[in-house]
Simulated scan of single mutants.
Amino acid sequence: MKLDDYRTSDNISDQRGGCGGGGFNLPIGGGKMGIGTVIILGIAALVFGINPMDLMQGGGLPGGAPVATQQGGQNAAQSCAVDEKSKFSCQVLASTEDTWGAIFREQGQQYQPATLTFYDRNGRSGCGAAQSAMGPFYCPADNGIYLDTSFFDELATRFQAAGDFAQAYVIAHEVGHHIQTITGRSNEVRRAQQAASEADGNELQVRMELEADCYAGVWAARNRDRIEPGDIEEGLTAANAIGDDTLQKAAGRRPVPESFTHGTSAQRMAWLKKGLTSGDPAQCDTFSAARL
Rank of each mutant, 00 (worst) to 15 (best):
Y215D: 03
A216Y: 14
G217Q: 11
G217K: 03
G217F: 13
G217E: 12
V218K: 10
W219E: 12
W219V: 15
A220I: 02
A220D: 13
R222L: 08
R222M: 01
N223Q: 15
N223Y: 10
R224N: 12
R224Y: 12
R226P: 00
I227H: 08
E228C: 04
E228D: 01
E228L: 14
P229K: 12
G230M: 05
D231Q: 05
D231E: 14
I232N: 04
I232Q: 15
I232Y: 05
E234K: 15
E234M: 07
E234N: 09
G235W: 07
G235H: 07
G235N: 11
L236W: 06
L236S: 04
T237R: 13
T237S: 14
T237M: 03
A239N: 06
A239S: 03
N240M: 08
A241K: 09
G243A: 04
G243R: 07
G243S: 02
G243N: 12
D245I: 10
D245Y: 03
T246I: 09
T246P: 03
T246M: 12
L247M: 09
L247I: 06
Q248E: 15
K249R: 15
K249V: 11
A250C: 06
A250M: 06
A251L: 03
A251E: 15
A251M: 14
A251H: 01
G252E: 06
G252T: 01
R253G: 00
R253V: 00
R253F: 00
R253T: 04
R253E: 10
R254C: 00
R254I: 11
R254A: 08
P255S: 07
P255D: 14
V256P: 03
V256W: 10
P257G: 04
P257T: 04
P257I: 04
E258V: 13
E258I: 07
S259N: 11
S259A: 06
F260E: 14
F260P: 02
H262I: 09
H262R: 05
H262T: 01
G263D: 00
T264F: 02
T264P: 01
A266S: 11
A266Y: 03
Q267D: 11
Q267Y: 02
Q267I: 09
R268Q: 02
R268F: 01
M269P: 01
M269K: 06
M269H: 00
A270V: 12
A270H: 13
A270E: 08
A270T: 07
W271H: 03
W271Q: 05
W271A: 08
W271S: 03
W271T: 09
L272Q: 06
K273E: 15
K273Y: 11
K274Q: 14
K274E: 14
G275Y: 10
G275R: 02
S278V: 05
S278A: 11
S278P: 02
S278K: 01
S278D: 12
D280V: 08
D280F: 12
P281E: 07
A282F: 00
A282T: 13
Q283W: 00
C284T: 05
D285W: 04
D285A: 14
D285S: 13
D285F: 02
T286A: 13
T286Q: 10
F287I: 12
F287H: 11
S288L: 15
S288A: 13
S288F: 04
S288G: 15
A289I: 07
A289G: 02
A290M: 07
A290S: 06
A290Q: 15
